[in-house]
Design a protein around this nucleic acid. Sequence first.
RNA 1: GGAGACGUGGCUGAGUGGUUUAAAGCGCCUGUCUUGAAAACAGGUAUACCUUAACGGGUAUCAGAGGUUCGAAUCCUCUCGUCUCCGCCA
Length: 410
Amino acid sequence: MLDIKLLREEPEKVKKGVAAKGDDPKLVDEFLRLDEIWRKLTAEIENLRHEQKELEGERDFEAAKAVKEKIKEKEKELGMTETERRNAWMSIPNIPFEDIPAGKSEEDNRILREVGEKPEFDFVPKDHAELGKSLGIIDFESGSKIAGSGFYFLKNEGVLLELALVRYALDFLTENGFVLWLTPDLARDTFYLSTGYHPRGPEAQTYTIEGSDLGLIATAEVTLAGIHSDEMLEESALPKLYAGYSHCFRQEGGAYGKYSKGLYRVHQFTKVEMFVYCKAGDSPELHQKLLWLEEKLWQGLGIPYRVLEMCAGDLGAQAARKFDLEAWMPGRGDWGEVTSTSNTSDYQARRLGIRFRGKDGNVEFAHTLNGTAVATSRAIVAILENYQTKEGKVAIPSVLQKYVGKEIIG
RNA sequence: GGAGACGUGGCUGAGUGGUUUAAAGCGCCUGUCUUGAAAACAGGUAUACCUUAACGGGUAUCAGAGGUUCGAAUCCUCUCGUCUCCGCCA
């Protein structure tokens, strides 16, 4: 949700931002049209109410009642306009920061840097699905038997690897000042909507619980953002650095092909998510910090990666800026997305009602940011494929060895 | 799952049909005093919309939605949430 003052006073600026994201700038015109009608109706009703109150003061209840009838009619009209106006308002995406690279799709994303050495194999590297099966640490057959395609079981060292990755991320984030949270894996629809996701309907990518307003979360961003919704925070308590451990559930409808193979695109995975509440002026710097933390985590794992800045067209509705990390995946011989960090500015905070009182007593909306620390499924893909040996074994990254309790699988 | 209580501003908390434009306290801001701070004292302190050159004026918002009434924080219905007791359960 954008600032209404910005929409009214600088519609051309907003339209430019909406167009840069590849959305229709007419969304802004439509909102302003409805806003105009809404304001006019509101004013009319207010004047009628004033009239009614004066008549009541004069004890002319008959005349007051007649005015009330008029108000009722106008209110019906207002109610409809209000819903349309709000929907139009909500459908306008956050606008990108001014220095975001232009572009329509992921092809226009800017590669900022490449870090680490790609491993050289004197054999043909296998992909993680094949390695996982032969090592007996991933069981796709049982997964699809029990829950369908896109589900899996982890087994033996696969389980230990998953838990090690979680523990590695949590320990690292604790050292960096984060508060740890284990969040619910379900949340009410209202929190999806206010974080910028569509929980139901054709665009939905999440699972919902029938007969309730609950859904399985696609990311802990939803629950972590909800913690301080409708709250007035203390400026001195900002920034709040939160690390959330949760499972994530995604329908991934229509996804298939070689890049969806194995663990890469699944319906359920575990993720440690970073989430930050801060003051407006601090969000760019904290966004860089989240990116830095992601890079440190992947450097620690010893896996080559590259950093991408998303172009305006590939930002998603909530984000004003976004960076992805893509890890090298020898099994496919290509890069694969493993983390994503977004600065959503005050877009989520407005919907969620997250405010803070500044030193001068003024109330402002907070800024929120999110970033992946570790999504275990994709981390496992990268580890198996980068650390494989000629014999089909897999070495364990040194930072994980103390958690797994061994140096090699197989 | 059953029974009951409750939901008021940044916070605590009065208020059960009509000077409530929501008491009071705390917090916060400004001023006086002070070398500075504290204390004390004085004033201020929500959001949205309309109106006004400005001062100001008006309307709405007491968890949310609907209803009763000339008039609702207050009465009624539903939803959401919190708490207490009982039951069940890892």
